[in-house]
């Protein structure tokens, strides 16, 4: 960790995004990237439970982590799922030694080159609404202080999800989670549209949309909507 100064900066940056024009996809993406930076991890991802109780992948910092997390959801096995099921952190999982507990997951993690995994729950009044994953290439061990920082990041993610309207009852939580998941699908479609129009790959398309959204101080969701409906042309994004 770069010390308390950088930690404070990140928290201020995250708090700053929780204002007008709040965009949940962009917020969670930024949060996972900062978690990677602050905890010296190599990748992070975030999963949310939909109201059917199934976990859905919300964002990942890279394609390797995304593949692993998709695999985890599909096989219903792994630290993130245990963390979600029991509502407790599952940290410092040395993947070379966890084959007995999660045989399929550890094999997939080794294939992606990860040595350690950590999962922290997104909790809200006794309810677990998702989990944040961290992966490191080496089998590094996180200390208590780092785990506390990671859990704070997960708590901020929860606050972000509930930001648009205050949480009064269960139904509002459902609205928020449904909205966040639906927004994620829109952003995926927009990535495809832009990738095809500009002749670039999906990851580059995402970077272009995010850069454009930041420069114009526009929510990512609005940029995705404009890309999808054609009102924002590919060249405006590639030349901005």
């Amino acid at each position: 960790m770069d010390g308390p100064q950088r930690l404070a900066e990140v928290f201020v940056e995250l708090a700053d995004t929780l204002v007008d024009d709040f965009d949940v996809v962009e917020f969670l993406q930024m949060l996972t990237e900062r978690a990677v930076e602050l905890l010296g991890a190599d990748a992070a991802g975030l999963m949310l439970a939909d109201q059917r109780g199934a976990l859905q992948l919300m964002c990942s910092t890279n394609q390797r982590a995304r593949s692993l997390e998709v695999f985890e959801v599909q096989t219903s096995e792994g630290p993130c799922l245990d963390c979600f099921t029991y509502g407790a952190p599952v940290v410092n999982v040395d993947l070379a030694r966890a084959g007995g507990r999660w045989p399929a997951f550890t094999a997939a993690a080794a294939e992606q080159g990860y040595g350690a995994a950590h999962a922290l729950p997104l909790r809200l009044r006794g309810q677990v609404i998702g989990a944040m994953n961290l992966f490191t290439d080496a089998a590094v061990h996180l200390g208590e202080e780092e785990i506390a920082v990671g859990q704070s990041m997960a708590d901020i993610a929860t606050i972000g999800l509930l930001q648009e309207r205050s949480l009064r009852e269960q139904t509002v939580l459902s609205e928020q989670l449904q909205g966040a998941l639906s927004t994620r699908v829109l952003v995926e479609q927009a990535k495809g549209v832009l990738a095809e129009r500009a002749g670039i790959d999906i990851a580059q398309a995402f970077t272009l949309m995010r850069t454009y959204a930041r420069r114009r101080n526009t929510p990512l969701t609005s940029v995705a909507t404009s890309v999808v409906d054609g009102s924002l042309e590919a060249r405006e994004l590639t030349t901005s």
């Binding site: 995304r66 995926e188 479609q189 495809g192 549209v193």
Partner: peptide, 15 residues
């Protein structure tokens, strides 16, 4: 409902 299906949907709509 996988991300790749939605991304491909976007690409196919342009193609």
């Amino acid at each position: 409902d996988r991300a790749q299906v939605h991304q491909a949907t976007g690409m196919v709509s342009v193609q």
